[in-house]
């Protein structure tokens, strides 16, 4: 019990560093020149993706550390997954960024973890990360469904008028 609190404290103290590592790792999945652009430009309107990744990773990390419930986790991952759902990447890559958080924690706490302490606590922490990944998968699927729905909606916006005209028998084929 004591150990657990200690690990959590440790993580909270180093949250900023962990978040930065994680953010860097997520950005690094993009081509180098994109990485440079997104990392450099801090204006949230000139660089919305970079901004969302930066803010989003931090939000998720905080949620993980607080042991947030499923609903809160969903909310936290939505921003990032919404972006990745329409970018040129496979579904696994789109949600896989979550697992980079484990790497980030281990990298940041490498010295403390190396001597084998916190093994159980770390396992629990990683379970929480897994929960985030599942939430991300949910959101991803939801966003993909939304994209399909948007396709249909665009057509639907034409339909009342098309139907109206058909009913009055004036539509010409072709």
């Amino acid at each position: 019990m004591v150990e657990r609190a200690v690990l959590l404290d440790l993580l909270k103290r180093r949250a900023e560093a962990i978040a930065t590592r994680w953010y860097d790792a997520v950005l690094a999945e993009y081509p180098e020149q994109t990485y440079a652009a997104w990392k450099r430009e801090s204006n949230r309107f000139a660089n919305p993706v970079g901004h969302s990744l930066r803010a989003g990773t931090r939000t998720i990390l905080d949620a993980v550390l607080e042991g947030a419930d499923a609903e809160a986790l969903r909310g936290a991952v939505t921003d990032i997954v919404r972006i990745r759902a329409v970018q040129q990447m496979s579904p696994s890559a789109a949600v896989g960024f979550v697992f980079r958080l484990k790497d980030a924690i281990r990298a940041e706490l490498g010295d403390e973890l190396r001597n084998g302490s916190f093994r159980d606590e770390m396992a629990e922490m990683e379970q929480r990360v897994d929960a985030v990944a599942l939430a991300a998968f949910d959101v991803f699927a939801e966003q993909r469904e939304l994209v399909s729905e948007l396709r249909i909606n665009e057509l639907k916006r034409n339909i009342p008028w098309a139907t109206g005209r058909t009913n009055r028998g004036v539509v010409e084929p072709g």
Binding site: E32, Q33, T34, Y35, A36, A37, R40
Partner: peptide, 8 residues
């Protein structure tokens, strides 16, 4: 130094 500019 700027990857973007180096690429082009």
């Amino acid at each position: 130094a700027n990857a973007r500019v180096r690429y082009i």
